[in-house]
Each structure stands twice: as structure tokens, then as C-alpha cells.
Simulated scan of single mutants.
Amino acid sequence: MNVVAYLRVSTGKQESSGLGLEAQREYIHRAAEQEGWNIVGEYTDAVSGSVPPLERTQCGVALRSGIPLVVAKLDRLSRDVEHIAGVMKRYKFMVATMPQADAFQLHIYAALAEQERAFIRARIKDALGALQHRADSGDAASQEKIARRSEALAKGSKAPTAARMMEAKAQRVDQHREAIRPHLKACLYDGASTLQGVADCLNKKGQATSRGGEWSPTTVRRLMLALELSFGTVQRAMRE
């Protein structure tokens, strides 16, 4: 049976480090080998589990593919009973850590997971309340812990913004490269046969690098590698 793998990590450190993805992938591939599943695709989201599955970019694509979906653990799909029940009514999915579980069992596991999440939240809330009370009473150690936590939360809130900025920058670079492609090809067709020759040609055409500077052999080499163009490829195309 053909299946697609779905992996999810939360935003923040787990997303940037990649921690968790390899473990999920290993669970899924091990189950596929044991159950005879053929993995034909893989989809990954970096998003909180509180976001409904169909509202996640890659999860939505995976579910709508019409191919059964496999997750490493049930909480990678969702920790919300309502979310699980909604997906269960419309799509087929399996869990690598319990591949033989039926719909009723999965619903029970989802309910237990949601209850445990509620317990964890309550314990954290009570612990933070007690910590704040000790800090307000003048306990230096508690005040230091609260300060460290506030600093960590502030850093974490900046991480998604930094990631979006990096993604936007990468998109701008890709767009610039595509805009330069016809000029690069023209230089190659005009006989530029060295990196320096191409750099001189692009500079004469008034084409700047993505940073607004002049072309050099190094930046030309990076451009040609990114666009998968080479002197040999152009020469063969000219002969044909």
C-alpha cells in the first residue's frame, strides 16, 4: 500500500535545529518496513500542534492527496480530540507507533493525550504561580528564575520573525538570479569562456549582483551553479 509520511515539529529551537524530525522519520520507515507500506512522499510542517491539521500548509496537501497518511506518533497529527475526529471522518491515516490501532482506539488515545495536556498545563500554571509568589516575597533565586524565563520567551518570540526574514531574503535572491539568467546566457552565447569574461560582460550590461555590486569570478561561479549552467552546456547547445 502506498502511503505518505507527515512530520511535524513545533516552531522555535526544534524547528531551527531539526531535532525530532529524524526520530519521526525513523519511526515511520520502521513501521513501513514491518507493515509493507510504500512511502511515496513526505510532508513536513514547523507549526504548533494547536493549529488544525487542515490549516497547516503541508498537512493539508498530504491529506488531500488521497493517499493514506502516516505519522510517527498521534500527537504529530494533533493533540486535540476534535481535530483527530474531524480528520478521521474524512481521511485515512495510520500511526507508526501503533500501526494496528483502529479508529476507536485512536479516538481513545487522542482523548487521553488531550487530558494529559490539560494536566500538564495546570501543573505548569500552578508552579509558575508559586514561583511568582516567592519572587514577590523577595526570594532572590525565584526572581532570577523569572528573569531567565522572561529572557528566553523574548528570544523565542524573535525566532519566527528572523526565519521569515531569511526566507524573504532567499526568495529575493532567487528572483534576482532568474532575472539575470537571460543576460548570463547572452554573455555565454557571445563567447565569454571564463568566469572573469562573464563577469566583465555582465558588468558592461549594467547588471548588478543581488547586493548591488559588480560581478566577480566568484559571484559568477555561484550564479552559474545556482542556475545549473556551465560553459560546456552552452557550447553543446550552440552546436546543436
Rank of each mutant, 00 (worst) to 15 (best):
R117E: 14
M224N: 06
E42V: 06
A186N: 06
S216H: 06
A31S: 06
R164E: 06
A5V: 00
T161G: 01
V40Y: 00
V3M: 09
R79N: 01
L153G: 05
R177E: 01
A32Q: 13
E228S: 15
L74S: 03
A147L: 02
Y91L: 05
L202A: 09
V47W: 07
A72K: 04
A23N: 03
V95I: 07
H183R: 13
C59M: 03
A186G: 14
P182D: 10
E33G: 13
R64G: 11
V220R: 04
R177K: 07
E228Q: 14
E116P: 03
A141I: 12
Q115H: 14
K89S: 06
A179Y: 11
H83R: 06
A192S: 12
V173P: 02
P99W: 00
D126F: 01
G213H: 11
A186F: 03
M165W: 03
I124Y: 11
A208F: 10
G197E: 13
Y189V: 15
A237W: 08
P160T: 06
V47C: 03
E167T: 03
A186L: 11
P52K: 15
R221L: 15
A130H: 01
P99C: 02
G206I: 12
V71Q: 01
L223P: 05
L184C: 08
L7V: 04
E35S: 12
V95A: 02
H133L: 09
G86P: 00
R148M: 10
A147S: 09
A199W: 08
S193Q: 00
E22Y: 09
S157Q: 07
A118V: 12
V173D: 06
T218H: 03
S78L: 02
